[in-house]
């Protein structure tokens, strides 16, 4: 059974049709890619599935449960987590606090624990701190745990965001341009990180990317979007040779 199933999803911004009749089926363990020119509606699709926007029409089914109408935090707690195209970190908080806070839905000590510091709270906070340190270790930024994020270099901030997303224990991870703004070295490292987290956490990954190298190397199946509609879906080889994709997005070699 598919982990995530989106059926004929359509979304309007006022009179503008941003997404039209979008279908998607992701099997567990897959790495899927979503490509397309700027303004094609890629990030809108992420925002629709993660609950930031409500689709005008259509169904989103995750693990057999309909996600339409749920709040973003409920969807995230179900196991659909994401990163953002423009880093959305909490500027005044430390790296450790970022990762710990993503475990919000796993915290059960409630307000009594928060106000009075009960034993249950100390146990839960200690457990989530340990997990946060493990994740930071894995991302190679454990030594920066007490730093405030705005002081850190861009590549490190990307890793913080990844660690934060993983801390919520997702089954399905959405990556919105994970290598945007990175230099070639950071890019290779990030691809390595993505492969590692997929293997270690048995994650299913859905990613938006503009760099063809990343998409072609990482993804098993790629969707191409243009003006809010899927114009092609297939393996990297199929996409690379698809005339519609070349026309809308990749461009003809002869022209460049």
């Amino acid at each position: 059974m598919a982990l995530l199933q989106v059926k004929s999803m359509t979304h309007f911004f006022g009179g503008l049709r941003a997404v039209h009749n979008y279908d998607l089926e992701i099997e567990p363990g897959q790495v899927r890619g979503l490509i397309g020119p700027n303004g094609a509606g890629k990030t809108t699709i992420f925002n629709l599935i993660t609950g930031i926007y409500q689709p005008t029409e259509g169904e989103i089914i995750f693990n057999g449960q309909n996600l339409v109408g749920l709040h973003p935090h409920q969807i995230a707690a179900q196991g659909v987590c994401r990163t953002f195209q423009t880093l959305r970190l909490w500027r005044h908080m430390t790296v450790l606090d970022h990762v710990k806070l993503a475990r919000y839905s796993k915290i059960h000590y409630g307000l009594i624990g928060a106000f009075f510091g009960t034993g249950q709270r100390h146990r839960e906070e200690a457990a989530s701190e340990k997990m946060a340190y493990d994740l930071l270790e894995m991302m190679g930024i454990r030594n920066l745990a007490d730093q405030v994020v705005i002081n850190l270099p861009y590549g490190v901030q990307r890793r913080v965001e990844m660690a934060r997303a993983l801390a919520s224990e997702p089954q399905l991870l959405f990556l919105d341009e994970p290598t945007a703004g990175m230099n070639p070295e950071e890019l290779v490292e990030m691809m390595e990180v993505i492969r590692r987290v997929r293997d270690e956490f048995e994650l299913t990954i859905f990613l938006i990317e503009h760099r063809m190298r990343v998409v072609m190397e990482l993804c098993e199946i790629i969707q191409t979007l243009d003006f809010g509609e899927v114009i092609a879906e297939g393996t990297p080889e199929e996409i690379r040779s698809n005339p519609r994709v070349i026309d809308a997005y990749l461009g003809k070699e002869g022209i460049v």
Binding site: G51, H71, A76, F84, L101, S128
Partner: peptide, 30 residues
């Protein structure tokens, strides 16, 4: 009580709401 609250994960959610509410929602924070 306020010292306890501000140091708990539930209390730190306040700071996340202040710094970026969308990101807080996306990271399971109610």
């Amino acid at each position: 009580m306020i010292y306890n609250f501000t140091r708990s994960t539930i209390g730190k959610a306040m700071c996340a709401v202040r710094d970026d509410e969308t990101a807080a929602e996306a990271m399971t924070v109610n």
